[in-house]
Design a binder for these strands. Structure first.
Lengths: 341, 341
DNA sequence: AAGTGAATTGAAACCGGTTCCATTATGAAG
DNA sequence: CTTCATAATGGAACCGGTTTCAATTCACTT
């Protein structure tokens, strides 16, 4: 099936190609009569314009790339959903770049703003280095960071420090003092995830604010995943003075803790309080107390910010949007068993 | 920053644009000396070719669209992961079209093969109608269906009937006869999901093969989601003769059943056996007996099939790949409590 | 020395749109 | 009856690459 081009349509309608183009773009500079004739020709030939050609001549690609380590965490998918919903309405294509290794991360951040002519770039959860940011700025591709921060770029973040502080404060308010933290290895953060650092900071801050001394043995670090969290929780239970409450870096890790508790016949929340972070969908299923962060919204807002950025091609002041977190109290937290006389 | 074009490079290197193009495409028809000079000019100008222009002149868009109702089921994301991994290595861009309403489904299937010049199309879990398939065939855009079937297009599917049969057979082998099925509303299937029909069929087939009469009250239909499954399970428990085993359409629904059992103080598996379908990640966490289907692989195979299709632009016989399922026995199934004398 | 062929090269033509500019038709104003 | 603005239109130029084709160079035959 030979491709029908705008010239075929023009010939068939007996008009010039410019006129056809005007009809396609709803220009007012076409008489109704001519417009009809062109429309008929278009239908008769089953013509549809080539987006690639249109992109070339317009100098815009009508495509936005989203780069993220999508499949490693459930929460990124929810963010992607927010992005997709906003972009779908905008007419821009969403090109997905998944990043699972640091090598690919670097390759993407290097090559994306170069080879591809993108109209915009959304970087999710990956904190670019200064030199990468410079490259992005020079390349003139509007970029927005979601769940990552850099001074020079517009960002959408969540106040992880405050969220974590709230979580721990909730435990303190219930009367807990022996509060452990289960998270990822802070020294092994190749993707430079900021929340890893911030939530730990919130934990420390809350303890300090309540004059509860930090006990290193209550700080567990390990690889990400509920299996590993299970293991870490068990090592906490084995301590001489085990914690009465555990704050987990994420809901996923909290599930590992819950499982470990069940395994060790510790009843939650009477013998052990557990609190997570994220409020992913199944958290409700488990009745997990957690800190909700607006995942969907962070993506949606990021996409909106990017679209604004693209439209107002002028260099406006970079915005840093910080979304709030919210404590969601369910059934895995309660006052500690022993009264604290 | 004015865009650097191939002509700028040519001028700077003192050669023709054709030569620059040849260097870019690793053509052997360039002398080493010239090649070096061009390379230097490219670096000096920080030039990178416009992919859009390249696409236009080559007549290929180097883009593959993936269309699916991604965010309604966990399992689609896993399939997407398989697709992404294969495509990432291929050099094709992955353009994501999410479909959450039937209106958007129709709009996508109509417009995608038209306006956009795609090199390929992957349709996930959406069964196109005959007229849509005709349109696709006429449009010359290679298309592969994953988790959906149509005679005229290459497909990757799972034998849902057999999988369901295996699941129910497993329950029968354990000695169950009062086996209920919890699934979606069969009469309300706007997206035309084939597995909904097939798994129910497998359930019926297995019962029939074992000469166990089908009891309509054991067939629960409702909206998708564990909450609804919870409700349906409770209505089953309230029957005069409640089932001793429940086969759930998916793991997600099975979780709802497990929760309902816990809620009603029914112990699993001694008083109630539960089996799911999919083997999503958390199924292992719950020790759920289920039927594993190769989600990741189905996406990967689909993408591979599509790439083959694109390369061998000739019309080869359409392939229909059927992937096997596998029974994964964990801890939610056991022989029924009452002995069946 | 003229002829052959391979290697290398420059530039025109092309991909399929958009946009700008020149041209014509039309109607109102002077 | 000009004069001029305005609406409508055709088509060239352009976007930035690839590809084709003709031209040039140079070594090697005969």
């Amino acid at each position: 099936m030979a491709t029908v081009t705008i010239r075929d349509v023009a010939k068939r309608a007996g008009v010039g190609i410019g006129t056809v183009s005007r009809v396609l773009n709803d220009s007012p500079l076409v008489s109704d009569e001519t417009r009809q004739r062109v429309q008929q020709a278009i239908e008769a030939l089953d013509y549809s314009p080539s987006s690639v050609a249109r992109r070339l001549s317009r100098g815009r690609s009508m495509a936005i790339a989203v780069i993220a380590p999508f499949f490693v965490r459930r929460s990124y998918i929810e963010r992607l959903r927010g992005i997709e919903n906003v972009l779908a309405a905008s007419g821009y294509d969403l090109i997905l770049y998944n990043v699972e290794t640091i090598a690919r991360r670097d390759a993407c951040l290097q090559s994306l703003p170069r080879g591809e002519r993108l109209d915009g770039l959304l970087v999710l959860s990956l904190a670019p280095t200064d030199s990468e940011v410079n490259r992005l700025l020079r390349s003139d591709v509007p970029t927005v960071l979601v769940d990552a921060f850099h001074e020079a770029l517009p960002t959408i973040t969540v106040d992880d420090v405050a969220g974590a502080r709230t979580a721990v404060q909730h435990l303190i308010d219930l009367g807990h003092e022996r509060i452990a933290y289960i998270g990822e290895n802070l020294d092994d953060n190749p993707f430079n995830f900021q929340p890893m650092i911030d939530r730990y900071r919130g934990y420390r801050d809350a303890l300090a604010a309540a004059d509860i001394p930090f006990r290193p043995q209550y700080h567990c670090q390990g690889k990400y995943g509920w299996r590993e969290a299970h293991r870490m929780a068990q090592s906490l239970f084995a301590l001489d003075e085990p914690p009465t409450a555990i704050f987990a870096y994420s809901d996923t890790l909290a599930f590992g803790v819950l499982e470990a508790a069940q395994h060790s016949a510790l009843s939650v929340p009477s013998q052990l309080s557990v609190i997570g972070f994220d409020d992913v969908e199944i958290a409700q299923y488990f009745q997990l107390t957690t800190v909700r962060q607006p995942l969907y919204e962070s993506g949606a807002r990021g996409a909106e910010l990017l679209l604004e950025q693209i439209d107002s091609d002028a260099g406006r002041p970079v915005q840093h949007v910080v979304l709030p977190t919210e404590l969601v109290v369910r059934r895995t937290t309660a006052p500690p068993a022993e009264s604290l006389l």
